[in-house]
Amino acid sequence: MRRTDVVASPAFSPRRVGAMVLRYWYLLRGSWPRLLELAYWPTVQMILWGYINQFMATSSGWVAQGGGVLVSAVLLWDVLFRGQLGVSISFLEEMWSRNLGHLFVSPLRPGEWLLSLMAMSLLRTLLGVIPAALLALPFFGYSVFGLGLPLLLFFANLILMGWSLGLVIIALILRYGMGAEGLAWIVTFMLAPVSAVYYPVAVLPGWLQAVAWALPSAHVFEGLRAVVYDGAMRWDHLAWAVGLNALYMAVAVGVFLYGFHRARVRGALLQTGE
């Protein structure tokens, strides 16, 4: 009869805990998007609310005169965020279900898929924003629909910018894998301090103003304040927003198609999943 000696492991082992911590640390250290996400929220919140505080302290009378400016700004900012997230989430749902490879053994072309992502993003955005806009009237006595035609133009520019960001995020996920999926939730908000959502671009330091004017969102929100405060449409800001969106959309589509092509060559469409 053979005797087998079984060595019982201790009920609690600090070494096992340390080994798992080391494993997760290697995962974190090896993914720059995860590291970025750690510092992102505290930094962006501090910068954003710091500038809001600075603007409110010096311009409280101006804010009081524009009764719906903050409500309108919040709703339009959500258009940008949901436009980007709608593209990214539809893509991520394919990644989580490991369905991306199956899609592209069918006759589906990347351009057709791209249009479907944009259409789904528009639907998600409308379903999310319209109820909130309707509730602003009974809760705050303000209707964002009173902006008229400018509202439609602001909406179109912000959702186009969101789509551009979403396509770049997809390309990054295809390149770096699911470790980069956190970018879908943080990239848009990284632009919030320089998008001048709740305060004019003039509040920013000079070097940041140059960055802000390179974003369609800053021109949209400057145009929004002009409509609310002065009742005038700033067509110069609209023209800048349209031009920048056209440029960024062209770049984003190119980055997306290149990233998709490289992922297909590497076989990443079949290997990446949840």
Score class of each variant (00 low, 15 high):
residue 196 A to Y: 02
residue 242 V to R: 10
residue 187 V to S: 05
residue 255 V to F: 03
residue 253 V to C: 07
residue 235 W to D: 05
residue 253 V to S: 07
residue 210 A to H: 09
residue 222 E to C: 05
residue 246 A to L: 15
residue 185 W to C: 00
residue 215 L to K: 11
residue 249 M to G: 05
residue 207 W to Y: 11
residue 240 W to L: 09
residue 214 A to S: 14
residue 194 V to D: 04
residue 222 E to V: 00
residue 213 W to G: 02
residue 222 E to I: 00
residue 207 W to E: 05
residue 188 T to E: 10
residue 248 Y to A: 08
residue 189 F to V: 01
residue 256 F to V: 09
residue 195 S to R: 06
residue 254 G to V: 14
residue 183 L to S: 04
residue 237 H to S: 07
residue 222 E to W: 08
residue 223 G to K: 10
residue 235 W to S: 07
residue 184 A to E: 01
residue 243 G to I: 11
residue 218 A to F: 07
residue 231 G to C: 13
residue 252 A to N: 06
residue 244 L to V: 05
residue 192 A to W: 09
residue 187 V to I: 15
residue 240 W to H: 13
residue 230 D to Y: 10
residue 201 V to A: 05
residue 206 G to Y: 06
residue 184 A to C: 04
residue 252 A to H: 03
residue 241 A to S: 11
residue 251 V to F: 09
residue 245 N to Q: 05
residue 210 A to W: 13
residue 260 F to W: 13
residue 233 M to V: 15
residue 255 V to N: 10
residue 254 G to H: 14
residue 258 Y to H: 14
residue 226 A to K: 07
residue 191 L to V: 02
residue 246 A to T: 13
residue 239 A to K: 14
residue 187 V to K: 03
residue 204 L to P: 01
residue 233 M to L: 14
residue 204 L to M: 08
residue 193 P to T: 04
residue 238 L to F: 14
residue 195 S to W: 00
residue 260 F to L: 13
residue 213 W to L: 12
residue 220 V to S: 03
residue 255 V to W: 04
residue 256 F to P: 06
residue 186 I to C: 03
residue 200 P to Y: 01
residue 229 Y to H: 15
residue 217 S to W: 07
residue 211 V to Q: 14
residue 237 H to P: 00
